[in-house]
Amino acid sequence: MQFDSWQAFWHMGGYAFYVWASFGVTFLAMGLIVLNSMMTHKKLLKEVAQEAARQQRIATAKQATKQNLTGEEV
């Protein structure tokens, strides 16, 4: 290691603010875009599942009314 102590490491030879701000913002930005992509993925999958369930409900409801109507006629 290039530094004598942890304290010296965090101090970064007097450039602590600039170095740590750079690394901090970089990892934050990278984390945020990964998080955003993952959450969008989850949301999309949920929406597709909901849409499929809706279609299913509509189909069964149609089937039911059809049966009811034909049942009444007989």
């Binding site: 970064m12 030879g13 007097g14 450039y15 600039y18 170095v19 750079s22 690394f23 970089t26």
Partner: peptide, 10 residues
């Protein structure tokens, strides 16, 4: 000095 370490992301 140590400010050059920003190079590793810049």
């Amino acid at each position: 000095g140590d400010s050059f370490r920003i190079i590793y992301i810049h």
